[in-house]
Design a protein around this nucleic acid. Sequence first.
DNA 1: TTAACTGCAAATCCTTTGCAAATCA
DNA 2: TGATTTGCAAAGGATTTGCAGTTAA
Lengths: 127, 127
Amino acid sequence: MKEKVVGQRYSRQREEILRVVRETESHPTADWVYEQVRKTLPHVSLGTVYRNLNLLADEGLVQRVILDDGVVRFDGNTHHHHHFICTKTGKIYDVALPLDREVLAQFNAQTGFKATHIKIEFYGEKE
Amino acid sequence: MKEKVVGQRYSRQREEILRVVRETESHPTADWVYEQVRKTLPHVSLGTVYRNLNLLADEGLVQRVILDDGVVRFDGNTHHHHHFICTKTGKIYDVALPLDREVLAQFNAQTGFKATHIKIEFYGEKE
DNA sequence: TTAACTGCAAATCCTTTGCAAATCA
DNA sequence: TGATTTGCAAAGGATTTGCAGTTAA
C-alpha cells in the first residue's frame, strides 16, 4: 500500500525503511535496517537510510532509542514505553507500565523539581 | 596529594583528570575535561584524556553517563543515582531517591521480568 | 516542471590506537 | 632497569553532507 507516509513526498525507499523498522522488535541500528532494506532495494544507499530514519524519527513515526551503550537504535513502537535490557543476551524489550504518574509524583514531592516525564531502563535477566 | 590513584602507576595527568571530573557537577564530556586539564597541563593530549577517563570509569572512580542525546559524559559522583535533565537549560542534575526498590518490585510483579537494577531519567523544567 | 529525493563519495565528528620517547617505581 | 604512561598523529567507526542525476506530484 503505497500510502504517503509523511508530510513529504512518497518514496519507495522511505516506505521500505519504515516497514522494516515496524516489522521487527529488535530495536535495530541504522546499519541493520540498511541490510534489510537492501534485500528488496539492492541499490539503496546507507545515506538514504540515515536520512529517512532521522526524518521518520522527527515526524514521530519511529523512535530513536539510546541506551547505556550509546548505540543509536530505532523502535517502531511509538507509544510511550520503557525498556527492559536483558543483561545476559543484550536483548531489549519494550515495556509499558502505569508507574509513571506515581514515580513522577513521588519524585517531585521529594525533590522540588518539576519533572513532567520520565524514562526508565530496567536491567536484569529475563526470567 | 599525589596519592596513587588507581591500581596502576601514578601519573600527573591522571590525577588532574580525576580532579577535574570530581570538582565539577556539570557532567562534562571528554573534550571539556581536556580543555580544563590543559589549564594546568598545557601539553596533555586528548588521547591521554580519553585513555584515563576510560580507565577511571573501568576502575569505578568516575561514572560514564549517556542520556538521550547520545553524548558521552562523565560524572564524579559514583554513588548510585539518577538524573534530572532540565528541558529548558539542558543542565543535568544528580538525584538520589529511595524509589528503586519499590519501582523494581512493582515492575517485576507486573511484568514477570526479573529486573535487578534500574536507571531513571527525569525531564522537566527545574523549578 | 520543479521541489523532493536518491546514490555516491567525501567530509565530519568522536574516539581509539600504534609507536617512539618519557616517566614512575 | 623495566613496565606504564605519554604525546602525537594516523586510523576507525558512525553519521552527515554536497552534488549531480532521478523521480514523484
